[in-house]
């Protein structure tokens, strides 16, 4: 298990390097290195330091956050399809951002980030409370259903705005596909504390989540205070998924497939699944972002497109050969 993590970390470092090395502008490896060792303010150095490095770090952070958020959601709902996109978090963020563009004509990324975070938080709070109604508190079935229904409701409102107002659609369609183009370090530093807190909280809960996936009764029988564990896990989800969507827009797919890929290598223990998910999520998003920049150079595609095109074939391969049942 540990060796797998080490290999994963090694691959991540390679991907980070590649992400700094390749991009719209042709910059040689030597120039890349000198941008760090001997910074002289040339155009190449500026591109490396102010564009590519922040972007690479953001991709890694967002990928890790989405991977872990998806893993926790799948654990909480005991449903292999759960992820921020399906349980309403992304839809809440998207509606908040589309609403603010439509009503106030906002167009700066930091405004988007703020409203995305708030929208995601509100949506998840509503989903979690709906899923926790009644005796016995949160149940996986109720949570999944409430999430799916609210997701549909919110995204239908979003689509209504987009169909009624072509200007908003034009303004926002790139953001809606999920993208990390043009994000700078300030934005990342604003979100970093929340995501970091979410990651620590998640890793701290990993043992309890593993127990919880055995079923509510088993967990209670083993002396777990399930209400607190589920509540804390829900808080971790909002920090992670909210942070990710506020930087990168509603990226789907990462949160869904990364935990599965992690599970194929790490088994059923969340103490391993969560770190693997963080690593795989980061690798997937960094690679997808490289592809998004390189494939149609000098234009670029939304990274949300590339995560699916890069990740889905691999995921299908894993599902075909590794799912025995």
């Amino acid at each position: 298990m540990l060796s797998g993590l080490v290999v994963g970390a090694g691959s991540l470092v390679l991907c980070l390097g590649a992400s700094v090395r390749f991009g719209a502008a042709e910059i040689g490896t030597g120039d890349v290195i000198s941008a760090f060792t001997a910074y002289d303010g040339s155009e190449e150095d500026l591109i490396i330091r102010t564009l590519r490095v922040p972007r690479t770090l953001i991709a890694a952070l967002v990928g890790a956050a989405l991977g872990v958020a998806g893993a926790i959601m799948q654990g909480l709902t005991r449903n292999p399809l759960a992820e921020p996109g399906i349980l309403g978090v992304n839809a809440g963020a998207a509606l908040a951002v589309v609403g603010v563009v439509f009503l106030l004509g906002a167009s700066s990324l930091s405004t988007y980030a703020l409203f995305a975070f708030v929208g995601a938080g509100v949506a998840w709070a509503v989903v979690y409370s709906l899923g926790s109604l009644g005796r016995g508190g949160m149940s996986p079935m109720k949570l999944a259903l409430a999430g799916a229904a609210l997701e549909a409701l919110l995204s239908s409102l979003t689509t209504a705005i987009l169909i009624l107002d072509q200007r908003t659609l034009d303004e926002i369609r790139f953001w809606l596909a999920g993208s990390i183009a043009g994000r700078d370090l300030t934005l990342m530093l604003q979100v970093l504390p929340y995501v970091a807190l979410g990651l620590f909280l998640a890793l701290g809960l990993s043992r309890q989540i593993t127990t919880l996936t055995l079923g509510e009764d088993v967990a209670t029988g083993l002396g777990q205070r399930t209400v607190w564990v589920k509540g804390a896990a829900a808080v971790a989800v909002i920090l992670l998924a909210g942070g990710a969507v506020s930087i990168a827009g509603p990226l789907v797919f990462v949160g869904l497939v990364v935990p599965h890929a992690a599970r194929f290598f790490a088994g059923v223990d969340y103490r391993w699944i969560l770190p693997y998910s963080a690593l795989f999520g980061a690798i997937l998003l960094v690679c997808a972002d490289i592809a998004a920049r390189v494939v149609v150079r000098p234009q670029e595609l939304p990274v949300g497109v590339m995560t699916a095109l890069v990740g889905a074939p691999f995921f299908i391969y894993l599902a075909r050969w590794r799912v025995k049942r």
Partner: peptide
């Protein structure tokens, strides 16, 4: 397997 592969195919097509 059907549902996971379906999710993958769906992701490719929607991308």
């Amino acid at each position: 397997r059907l549902i996971l592969i379906g999710v993958g195919l769906s992701a490719i097509a929607s991308a």
